[in-house]
Amino acid sequence: MRLPSTAARRGFHTTRPQFASPYHYPEGPRNNIPFNPLTKFFAVRYWGFMAVGFSAPFLIAVWQTKKNK
């Protein structure tokens, strides 16, 4: 007795993107990110953000260790 394969009968398909939706960005490079990497000081702001985000847990841990009990 052979069971029917449900995966073979399943209709795999994709839906057409709705570009009128506010949740989709227009086509083209760099249009799907929420910031503009072509601004003048983007690299400085980017690396500053990364440095703060990476060092914050370590600085908080040092502060918690050093503060009075």
Rank of each mutant, 00 (worst) to 15 (best):
G11D: 11
Q18N: 15
W63S: 06
H13L: 07
G28D: 02
P57Y: 02
T65L: 12
Q18M: 13
H24F: 15
F49Q: 03
N36G: 03
R9N: 07
P37N: 03
P57K: 04
G28Q: 10
T15F: 01
Y23N: 14
L59E: 02
T14I: 13
R30M: 10
P22M: 07
N32Q: 12
N36R: 10
G28I: 13
G11E: 13
R9S: 07
N32C: 12
A43N: 08
A51I: 08
P26I: 07
M50I: 15
R16C: 00
T65C: 08
Q64H: 06
R9F: 05
F54K: 04
W47T: 10
R2F: 09
L59F: 04
F49K: 04
Q18A: 15
S5K: 11
Y23E: 15
N36V: 07
A20Y: 07
A20D: 09
M1V: 15
Y23S: 14
L3P: 03
N32A: 15
R30H: 11
A56Y: 02
R9P: 00
I60D: 00
R9Y: 06
T15S: 04
Q64N: 08
A20I: 06
S21R: 12
V62K: 07
P22H: 14
G53E: 01
K69P: 02
R10F: 13
A56M: 06
N31S: 11
I60C: 06
I33A: 11
Y46I: 04
K40E: 01
A8C: 03
F19I: 15
F42A: 03
P29V: 00
E27Y: 09
K40D: 00
I60E: 00
T39N: 13
K69F: 04
H24W: 13
G48C: 11
S21D: 14
A51F: 06
E27C: 04
F35D: 04
Y25S: 14
N68F: 07
N32H: 14
R2V: 12
A61G: 08
R30E: 06
P57T: 00
A56I: 01
I33T: 03
N36D: 15
S21K: 12
N68M: 09
G11S: 05
V52W: 03
P37W: 08
R30I: 00
V62A: 09
E27N: 08
A56N: 02
A43G: 02
I33L: 11
